[in-house]
Amino acid sequence: MRMIFTKLVRLVVVLFVVTFLSFWFIKLIGGNNDLVAKMIPFASIEEKERVREEIGLNKPFFVQYRNWIGNFVTGDLGQIYTGSGANVASVPVSETIVKRLPVSLELMLYAQLLALAIAIPLGVFTAYRAGSKFDRGSNMAAFGLLALPQFVVALLLATYVGAKWQLLPTQANVDPFPLSPADNWQYMLMPIISLALAQIAIYTRLLRSDMIATLQEDFITTAKAKGIPAKRVLFRHALRPSSLTLLTVAGLNVGALIGGAVVIERIFQVPGIGGLLAASILSQQYLLTQSLVVLIAIFYILLNFFVDILYSVLDPRIRHARAVA
């Protein structure tokens, strides 16, 4: 309990640091007045002034930060301003994010599930049969996959599966994008495969080397000597103690994919968070950038928290060591 409490305190501190830094950094880049000029360069002077007023750019820095945090906590992430002359319109940032987040989550989740579903049995089996022909073949394939950039996979898929054979649509920029996996799977399948492929290679190799180490352990011989089937020895006895590294990397990937799948999102025109973030920077909508960066940071931190808890679930020694500490 105390452990969770200290962790929570740390979490809050880190969140403050992250929000402050990103707020300050973007102010620094944008410059107070410039920020609006960059967002709506073709708006009339009066409109720009109005927007400045609305955002509160005229106030002192710390007041701005406080207001921003206050709004952020209540779910008001600010507005996206577009338009020219006197016609400046605004859309709430939260509205856009709410539309995009499920897409990114789906992309990330399925890519991870696919990668793990293939990598876990493959890693376990190649470790079990380390040195066999199959193991060597799989190792080489994995090494090749690691050298295959995700965008190359994506472009290959887009070229053949999409353009040449026309099995799946390559452009997902349909509006509104169907949020239910049952309706959007044909848009998501290729992006998911593109993201998962390299991860299969990474996961398989990491799990394999950890498994090989575990399979040398005495308790594996004990399990074998108990007469339980090989499959159970591998999956019930060896897999769990071998999966901590895999868990770490998978956790990191989940974090990285939520905002980092930009290239794949772009190639397949998937409306995800990564693409939104890139677009916000390219079109200098820094208010949007700010909110997204903070959201991603929060996601990252929560994820770390979650992975930490998973460690304890997987390994009772960690659980108890922490309870004592």
């Binding site: 770490t248 770390n304 930490d308 460690y311 960690i318 922490r322």
Partner: peptide, 8 residues
């Protein structure tokens, strides 16, 4: 394994 996992 359990230090800030982002690290690695």
């Amino acid at each position: 394994k359990s230090h800030d996992s982002a690290v690695d």
